[in-house]
């Protein structure tokens, strides 16, 4: 069963990526986390995303396409990356999610792939 772990970060967490004192430790924690998922044979795919201010949002309103700078919603916590993992059940997915370096992670079951 595939589950997607959606990692959300606060502005403070995003700022760790460029903090000269802490960026090395921060990125190392993600590298080690991803490596464990890969070594355990459950990693399907995933990506780390650039910060939310780099986002471009397209929204169709009354038939007209609007293009805007920034993410879809201006919430405090923004999507920073995601991993898809292949594990037997939700309990196991949550166990792996609890090990991620992010302070907020949303876990969702993936719909079965269409053939």
């Amino acid at each position: 069963m595939h589950y997607t772990l959606l990692f959300h970060g606060s502005p403070e967490e995003f700022s760790l990526r460029t903090d000269p004192l802490r960026q090395e430790e921060y990125s190392a924690s993600w590298i080690h986390y991803e490596k464990v998922l890969r070594d355990s044979g459950i990693f399907v795919s995933g990506a780390c995303l650039y910060a939310p201010e780099t986002a471009t949002t397209l929204r169709r309103r009354e038939g007209e396409m609007l293009v805007q700078d920034g993410p879809i919603s201006e919430t405090k916590e923004q999507l920073g990356g995601f991993f898809i993992i292949d594990v037997p059940d939700l309990d196991t997915a949550l166990e792996w999610a609890s090990r991620c370096p992010s302070n907020a992670v949303e876990v969702r079951p993936n719909l079965p792939q269409m053939k």
């Binding site: 590298i31 080690h32 986390y33 490596k35 464990v36 998922l37 070594d39 609890s98 090990r99």
Partner: peptide, 8 residues
């Protein structure tokens, strides 16, 4: 590396 990756 493995210990850090598994750490909660």
């Amino acid at each position: 590396s493995r210990a850090i990756g598994l750490c909660e």
